[in-house]
């Protein structure tokens, strides 16, 4: 963070086309803006996406207005909506040492070894179903993991913004998914190897 004069938090999101990573980033953008961050820029990266192919989006958060809209090169946080993307894309490229990697995964935290980073894992897919969502809806749930491990915005504001985004599309269930994930997210500090949650 000391490299960054604006004290900006930069979050890069990975999902699959159709999975809703952009919507998730949008919800967090809205929640941070409502929480008093004056500089919020959510910039999707547009390529030749197909449904199912990995896609990414950038979210920059700062107290002050953000002037640089270029894609994030050195994220503080990386959010991965599907752990299998880890096999296809080097998601941690540019992630600052000690940076946070959030993964939706059915596997235990110990299966995701990244000694240089804080790793947060939750089974967002399973918890989404428990919250009453159709199987595969993970973009609301993953926000709960970011709320827990990222510490930028409180879960109440995130829940409120999720419910507003998903109006007419199970708003309460989507908010609940995030709350269940918030409670279930396990975090491993860099190089310690021990879960503390």
């Amino acid at each position: 963070m000391q490299e960054n004069p604006q004290q900006m938090t930069q979050i890069r999101w990975y999902g699959r086309g159709g999975q809703g990573a952009i919507t998730a980033a949008k919800v967090v953008a809205e929640a941070t803006f409502k929480s008093g961050y004056g500089g919020v820029v959510m910039a999707p990266t547009f390529g030749t996406e197909r449904r199912g192919a990995p896609v990414s989006t950038s979210l920059k958060i700062s107290r002050e207005k953000i002037y640089d809209l270029s894609p994030i090169r050195f994220p503080d946080i990386v959010v991965v909506l599907d752990y299998l993307i880890l096999n296809e894309v080097d998601v941690t490229v540019g992630l600052k040492p000690g940076g946070l990697l959030i993964i939706n995964s059915p596997r235990p935290l110990s299966d995701h070894q990244f000694p240089d980073f804080r790793v947060a894992v939750a089974n967002v897919t399973k918890l989404g179903i428990e919250a009453g969502l159709r199987k595969g809806i993970v973009n609301s749930g993953i926000i709960g993991a970011l709320g827990k491990a990222g510490g930028l915005v409180d879960i109440e504001m995130l829940s409120e913004c999720i419910a507003a985004e998903f109006v007419g599309r199970k708003p309460q269930e989507n908010a609940k998914a995030a709350q269940l994930v918030y409670a279930a997210t396990q975090i491993c500090e860099p190089s310690t190897g021990a879960a503390n949650a």
């Binding site: 953008a29 919020v40 959510m42 910039a43 953000i66």
Partner: peptide, 10 residues
């Protein structure tokens, strides 16, 4: 295009 059109900003 994209830099502004599809980017969310206050």
């Amino acid at each position: 295009g994209y830099y502004l059109s599809h980017t969310y900003m206050p």
